[in-house]
Lab assay of single mutants.
Amino acid sequence: CHSECLGNCSQPDDPTKCVACRNFYLDGRCVETCPPPYYHFQDWRCVNFSFCQDLHHKCKNSRRQGCHQYVIHNNKCIPECPSGYTMNSSNLLCTPCLGPCPKVCHLLEGEKTIDSVTSAQELRGCTVINGSLIINIRGGNNLAAELEANLGLIEEISGYLKIRRSYALVSLSFFRKLRLIRGETLEIGNYSFYALDNQNLRQLWDWSKHNLTITQGKLFFHYNPKLCLSEIHKMEEVSGTKGRQERNDIALKTNGDQASCENELLKFSYIRTSFDKILLRWEPYWPPDFRDLLGFMLFYKEAPYQNVTEFDGQDACGSNSWTVVDIDPPLRSNDPKSQNHPGWLMRGLKPWTQYAIFVKTLVTFSDERRTYGAKSDIIYVQTDATNPSVPLDPISVSNSSSQIILKWKPPSDPNGNITHYLVFWERQAEDSELFELDYCLKGLKLPSRTWSPPFESEDSQKHNQSEYEDSAGECCSCPKTDSQILKELEESSFRKTFEDYLHNVVFVPRKT
């Protein structure tokens, strides 16, 4: 048989008469490798580009789960590009990614509803959504962080984005990388972005840091009482949809009607710091009717980097990364020049730590249904340095008659930039024990000054392991946590139920 035959053949030295091919099969003959313009397919066939392209389009058009959109890589027609490569849609070739590779997620039936953290986790790592997304989240724990972890990498949506009755959302900033909504599939009414009845939605994105392009379709905003109209108009300008909307697409009466839409800028007039305090004062603000001013709200939190936005980490279910302080308005003076500047002394802060701070007014709604208010920009203030805590785990070892090696770990709280350490030492008198000992005694162990690591005695271990207080009263049991108490109650309830079950099964009433 021919060298490319495997198993047997019907005619000697003829690659077209093989029972099976050793390498690849091409047009009725066995070959060692697939010549151009053919590609290896499933490690035994040679196919042309049209064959591989037909497989790709067949799966793409069917949208069946589990099928493969075949691509070409290293002269092979394979189910998908290997790690580190992405497909070129024009020629199906796998090309190296520039940075992290995109991950295209194809949605069944063309859309997916995100109504819980669990459903959001199914899209973790996706960068391109081939379909439409509907966000409908009523509640949950730590929602802002969970949504950002699972949806934060999405850069492109081919269909539309719909935010509907998501009472738990305060902001859409968890879509931190969303840059493009194509609108290839539109919501009824030709809408590519749809926001309806979101009672706590206050911000779409921080438009000073976020760009969003909507290729096709219109915007729809109705019944978002805490979303200011200025935020919607800003989205029109940034996304390129200005002029597409009709009169009733953006409701003037049901958007922002319960919001404090600040239209003035508060400026800080005085800032002073110490290692654990920050004193702030800002310019006074009074609405047209000074009785509408209820006070100020001061927001602050630790910020290692200057990239904080107002609604980071917030949701309507209680999660809030900001510390909020309510401040009463100052006494009002008739003389504008003698107006008191409101302020606040922030206490209990960490030394040498940068804080993000902003302040906003708290006002009631005027009778004319106009909203007044003022808010400052987010500023960054760093507390002063102070003395560091003591170095940890000092170790001293003498390696000769004239040297001592000293080692330690950095302090747990540096409280500033540590530039150097101060080492103090003092000579001590020799131990009298060394002169009084009889060095001729056998088995004498000389006193040693070398360091030995501390260890816990058996008594201390027994005390720590004991669940009861000892007789001397030195140790006591740790208080039980809520989960331990709940577990004990469940076990007790189970024992009672099981005992009742045994009584009912074992003891049967005697027939009379």
Rank of each mutant, 00 (worst) to 15 (best):
K103R: 13
K103Y: 05
V104K: 08
C105E: 01
H106A: 03
L108V: 14
L108M: 14
L108G: 12
L108W: 15
E109I: 11
G110F: 13
I114T: 01
D115S: 07
D115M: 03
S116H: 06
S116A: 04
S116P: 01
V117Y: 02
S119L: 12
A120D: 02
Q121I: 15
Q121N: 08
Q121K: 13
E122T: 08
E122Q: 04
E122F: 05
E122Y: 05
R124S: 12
C126N: 00
C126K: 01
V128K: 05
V128R: 14
V128A: 12
I129W: 04
S132F: 01
S132H: 09
L133H: 00
I135F: 04
I135T: 04
R138S: 15
R138E: 04
R138A: 13
G140P: 11
N141D: 07
N142S: 13
N142Y: 03
A144N: 02
A144F: 15
A144G: 11
L147S: 02
L147R: 01
A149Q: 14
A149I: 10
N150H: 12
N150W: 13
L151K: 00
G152A: 01
G152C: 11
G152D: 01
L153F: 06
L153M: 13
I154H: 00
I154A: 07
I154C: 05
E156S: 07
E156F: 06
I157G: 00
S158G: 02
S158A: 13
S158P: 00
S158W: 12
Y160E: 03
Y160C: 15
L161T: 02
L161N: 00
K162V: 12
K162S: 10
I163Q: 00
R164M: 14
R165I: 10
R165F: 15
R165V: 06
R165H: 06
A168M: 02
A168K: 00
V170E: 10
V170Y: 13
V170L: 07
S171E: 05
S171K: 08
L172M: 13
L172P: 02
L172D: 00
L172R: 00
S173Y: 11
F174R: 01
F175D: 00
K177S: 07
L180C: 11
I181A: 01
G183F: 05
G183H: 03
G183T: 02
G183K: 01
E184F: 13
E184A: 05
E184W: 12
T185N: 13
L186G: 15
L186V: 07
L186T: 10
E187G: 13
E187F: 11
E187P: 12
E187I: 11
E187C: 13
I188F: 10
G189T: 07
N190L: 08
Y191H: 11
Y191S: 10
F193S: 00
Y194P: 01
Y194H: 10
A195I: 13
A195D: 00
A195C: 15
L196G: 06
N198S: 03
N198T: 02
N198I: 02
Q199K: 15
Q199M: 08
Q199P: 09
N200W: 02
L201T: 03
L201Q: 02
L201D: 00
R202K: 09
R202L: 06
W205S: 02
W205R: 02
D206S: 06
D206G: 05
W207K: 03
W207H: 08
W207N: 06
W207Y: 05
W207T: 08
S208R: 07
S208W: 13
K209R: 12
N211G: 10
L212M: 03
L212T: 12
T213D: 13
I214T: 05
T215M: 08
T215P: 07
Q216T: 11
G217A: 03
K218N: 02
K218P: 12
L219Q: 02
L219V: 06
L219G: 05
F221Y: 13
F221P: 00
H222P: 00
N224R: 00
L227K: 00
L227W: 00
C228F: 08
L229A: 12
L229M: 08
S230K: 14
S230L: 12
E231Y: 01
I232M: 09
H233K: 04
H233Q: 13
M235W: 03
E236I: 03
E236N: 14
E236F: 13
E236P: 03
E237C: 15
E237G: 05
S239F: 03
S239L: 11
T241L: 14
T241H: 09
K242A: 03
G243F: 07
R244E: 05
R244P: 12
Q245M: 12
E246M: 13
E246F: 10
N248H: 03
N248E: 10
N248Q: 04
D249L: 15
I250N: 14
I250A: 08
A251S: 08
A251H: 03
L252I: 09
K253A: 06
K253D: 03
T254K: 10
G256R: 06
D257K: 14
D257F: 09
A259R: 06
A259S: 10
S260H: 04
S260P: 09
C261K: 03
E262G: 05
N263Y: 02
E264S: 09
L265P: 12
L266Y: 01
L266K: 00
K267M: 06
Y270R: 00
Y270V: 00
I271Y: 06
R272F: 00
T273W: 12
T273I: 07
S274F: 11
D276R: 01
L279P: 00
L279R: 12
L280Q: 00
L280H: 00
L280I: 04
R281Y: 00
W282K: 00
E283N: 13
P284F: 06
Y285F: 05
W286M: 07
P287T: 11
P287K: 05
P288W: 10
P288V: 11
D289E: 03
F290L: 03
F290A: 14
R291Y: 15
R291P: 05
L293D: 03
L293Y: 04
L294N: 10
L294E: 07
F296L: 04
F296K: 00
M297W: 10
M297R: 02
Y300S: 06
Y300D: 00
Y300V: 09
K301Y: 05
E302V: 04
P304L: 15
P304M: 15
P304N: 08
Y305K: 04
Y305C: 09
Q306S: 14
N307I: 15
F311T: 11
D312Q: 03
D312H: 09
D312Y: 05
G313S: 10
Q314V: 10
D315T: 05
D315Y: 05
A316L: 11
A316F: 14
A316Y: 05
C317Y: 06
C317P: 09
N320P: 05
N320H: 10
S321R: 12
W322K: 00
W322C: 01
W322F: 11
V325L: 12
D326M: 04
D326H: 02
I327Q: 02
P330W: 02
P330S: 07
L331K: 11
R332S: 09
S333K: 09
N334L: 04
N334F: 03
D335G: 05
D335I: 12
P336M: 02
K337F: 14
K337A: 14
S338V: 12
S338T: 10
S338E: 13
Q339L: 10
Q339M: 08
Q339S: 08
N340Y: 07
N340K: 04
N340S: 09
N340H: 08
H341A: 12
H341Y: 08
G343D: 01
W344F: 04
W344Q: 12
L345G: 05
L345F: 09
L345Y: 15
M346G: 06
R347W: 14
R347I: 05
R347L: 05
G348K: 01
K350S: 11
P351H: 06
P351M: 02
T353F: 04
T353L: 07
T353W: 04
Y355M: 02
A356Y: 00
F358S: 11
F358R: 12
V359E: 00
V359H: 01
K360S: 09
K360T: 02
T361M: 10
L362M: 10
V363N: 09
V363L: 11
V363G: 15
F365P: 14
S366R: 13
D367H: 12
D367F: 04
E368A: 08
R369M: 05
R369N: 13
R370L: 06
R370H: 02
T371I: 14
T371Y: 15
T371V: 08
G373S: 03
G373Y: 03
K375V: 08
S376K: 02
S376T: 12
D377L: 01
I378M: 03
I378L: 13
I379K: 10
I379E: 12
I379S: 09
I379Q: 13
Y380F: 13
Y380S: 03
Q382I: 14
Q382C: 06
Q382E: 10
T383R: 00
T383H: 00
T383M: 01
A385W: 04
A385E: 07
T386A: 04
P388R: 01
P388L: 02
P388A: 02
V390L: 05
P391H: 01
P391S: 02
L392D: 06
L392C: 08
D393K: 15
D393V: 08
D393Q: 12
D393I: 02
S396W: 07
V397T: 10
V397P: 13
V397K: 15
N399Y: 10
S401Y: 13
S402Y: 15
Q403M: 08
I404Q: 01
K407P: 00
K409N: 15
K409D: 06
